[in-house]
Simulated scan of single mutants.
Amino acid sequence: MKILVIQQKMIGDVLTSTIICEALRKEHPNATIDYLVNSSTKPVIQENPFFDHIVEFKNEYRNSKKKFYAFLIEIKKSKYDLVVDAYGKLESNLISYFSKAPEKVSFYKWYTRFLYSKVIYRKPEPVTNASIAIENRLRLVYPEDKITSNIIRPKIFLTEEEKNKAESYLKNNKITSEKPLIMISVLGSEIRKTLPFDYMAKVIDEIVETTNANILFNYIPSQENDAKAIYDLTTGNTQKQIHFNVFGKSLREFITILSHCDALIGNEGGAVNMAKALDKPTFTIFSPWIIKKDWNMFEDGAKHDSVHLYDFKPELYGDKTPKEMKDKALELYKNFSTEFIIPSVRSYLQNLKL
């Protein structure tokens, strides 16, 4: 049996959707399972034993209809028996169609229903603390009555060589296990997912004051100026604890460094999902327009906790959902005062006992 799982979104979605591959491996232990993802997200799923091959969706397929068509023909030649489309956009619709697989499963959309042999209706509310993101993906594999007994956590797999290399890198920068090491997700993927810089600086000051930990910033080279702006807003004492130039030069390097951290704190996004997949404690600051129940995976108020503006000021939303308030994100952030965030962070760190 040959199975193709498709997920072409960003890092967090690609990592989370590996649970589909793991569930399928349990159901079909002798099957060949391929996982189709965008090339840029490959590092987060390397070494994963629950699928056999990574099928790369390259940028050139988006830029050239001719190359995309050639890719579709290769998919058809692979003769898949089952396609699980967790992406559900035009590209994956076409990939699913061209596969000619006798079984094709995806989430329900009225305008693509005819392309699939089975469609799954997303549930709006979670039934466990795994979050809707986990449960709805598992519905692509399991019937409803088996969801709660088959909850799976996303996992990242690293080699010993990778972990040892990261440890050496940290030691060379005078970072050892003698003090706690905390990764700060200082920036979101966009401004509407990023806590205002001055607020984040105060949060980092609190973290250092409470733990005296070494601090690493999670940022990519194109975000360096913004990360530096946040650094400049912290106190002199905090800056002594921040190792600003110690960061992963690639996604895989970031993951290996994160594997040596004691916790990750900061803006919701892929970094939080990666920390959880490495079994690292997390404290997440949700953007005011992100629906918390969709992505607060495995929160228990202890090892994993979070804050959302809606928790403190639901009256700001009226009858609208946080997602419907997306265009007002920057305005809403002004109300997300550190007087709400810092006590929660302090309590979390004290309970974590770093």
Rank of each mutant, 00 (worst) to 15 (best):
P154A: 08
E268Y: 03
K171R: 13
E74M: 08
Y231N: 02
K323M: 15
Q8W: 08
D205T: 11
E331R: 05
L158M: 08
F286C: 12
V105Y: 03
N214R: 06
P29N: 11
L72W: 00
T210A: 10
Y69L: 15
N150V: 07
L72Q: 07
K179N: 12
A229Y: 08
K280L: 14
T211L: 08
Y97D: 00
F312H: 13
T282E: 04
G318F: 09
N351Q: 12
E299A: 14
L195F: 12
A23Q: 02
N150D: 04
F107M: 06
G318E: 08
E161G: 03
Y333A: 03
I120Y: 00
S39Q: 14
L330G: 12
K165E: 15
N48C: 13
A277H: 03
H260I: 14
F286N: 07
H243V: 06
Q7S: 01
L354I: 11
F68V: 04
A275K: 03
N245D: 15
Q8I: 12
Y310G: 01
L158D: 01
L24T: 10
I255R: 04
R252G: 04
K66V: 12
V105N: 00
N296Q: 14
F157N: 03
A133W: 01
I45S: 04
I54R: 04
T194K: 08
L138C: 05
Q7L: 00
E27C: 11
K293F: 00
V246L: 11
D145A: 09
S189H: 00
S106D: 02
T238N: 10
I134T: 10
